[in-house]
Design a protein around this nucleic acid. Structure first.
Lengths: 192, 192
DNA sequence: CTAGTTCTGTACTGATCTGTAAAGAAAGAG
DNA sequence: CTCTTTCTTTACAGATCAGTACAGAACTAG
């Protein structure tokens, strides 16, 4: 009942997510967070407790927005091959259009050892398994309709595609060569 | 001609490489580096100039040792499929045996945005292209002997395999499930 | 020996780090 | 109105950060 907050928690987490996404956990200072969220230190700590808790919220928000959007893309109409191809093409477009080359926040959090507490590891792991399962369901559909060969277990196919997907996101951080990334897409789709 | 150094530059860079590999660039302090190398601050700065220059040396050393060893493994006798499979199996064994789950230093450096100056980016890029080219040469051999299908350009096959390789290293950071990683290997080798 | 050079160890810089304390402002309850 | 609660702001705490200054040690040249 006390004094109402002057900010929206959602907007603050969104802003924090952007900062962590750009700079990573360790390189982001609480000062950065205050500036980008517009909050004073007191408000920020009163609302979120610590830099690390806000980091967890940011990863959660990423899962709810960006990662969910990716999974939703897989549910659109079209052949299974086309949907998987579009997933990767969308990533290439997004990664190359981003001047900050931020890549995937979940992947960044997975590789940055500092700030990888069990809480963060769990959040990241869930995003990975969610994608794996979504891919597996799609492969199962493709195999049941005869679009995809059924001589390999759907989970194995999904996992192989998933690794190509994350590899693609890593390569997109290193190279600006779109053709090289398209080769990855072609190879991954051909392997289905 | 002055006072001789009491340390081996090689040993110091090796020790620094281990620290950066474990913690990343940003989370490694100069204090960490002094403790692990055994050098005082004066000696360390006199010899290497800055934390970032030592980081570059560490990445260079990683390329000379670990990455070279990987490429050498590709040159061993055996079928092309077996060699590529062994490359991935070796990575699984190495990554799972490492309690620190450090993964690949080049990949870590590629995803950590801070400390990614042009110098570091160039060093990382070279390791990536070296692997791509080694893979491509191997695919060309496989295609010329008829072991691998020739209906795709060797470079595309190499790039697709490379992305699966890096994806595998990312997944190894997230999951401890060896079977999941073996699925990736099977999928990537089957796609050749 | 002395002079010159390079390395080592320590002390120190000023900046920045995460987090907290405390005082006052803005609301509702009675 | 007053009391209680929660938020905002500011100032501050103590630690740590990357890097430097400098004195003395260890060597070679002559």
């Amino acid at each position: 009942m006390g004094r109402p907050r002057e900010f929206s928690d959602r907007a603050v987490v969104d802003a924090a997510m952007e900062v962590f996404w750009e700079k990573g956990y360790e390189a982001t200072s609480t000062q950065d967070l205050c500036e980008r969220t517009g909050l004073g230190r007191g408000s920020l700590y009163n609302a979120f407790g610590s830099k690390h808790r806000l980091y967890e919220e940011a990863i959660r928000r990423y899962a709810e927005t960006k990662a969910e959007a990716q999974l939703a893309m897989l549910a659109e109409p079209g052949s299974v091959r086309a949907r998987l191809r579009d997933l990767m093409l969308g990533v290439i477009d997004a990664d190359m259009a981003d001047p900050g080359r931020r890549g995937c926040l979940a992947l960044n959090a997975a590789t940055e050892s500092s700030g990888r507490t069990e809480a963060v590891a769990g959040l990241v792991r869930r995003q990975f398994t969610d994608l794996e399962q979504a891919l597996q369901r799609l492969v199962e559909i493709g195999q049941s309709t005869g679009e995809l060969s059924s001589d390999r277990p759907p989970r194995q196919v999904a996992r192989a595609f998933q690794s190509a997907y994350y590899g693609l996101r890593v390569l997109a951080k290193v190279t600006g060569d779109r053709d090289a990334l398209l080769d990855v897409v072609d190879g991954a789709v051909a392997a289905l």
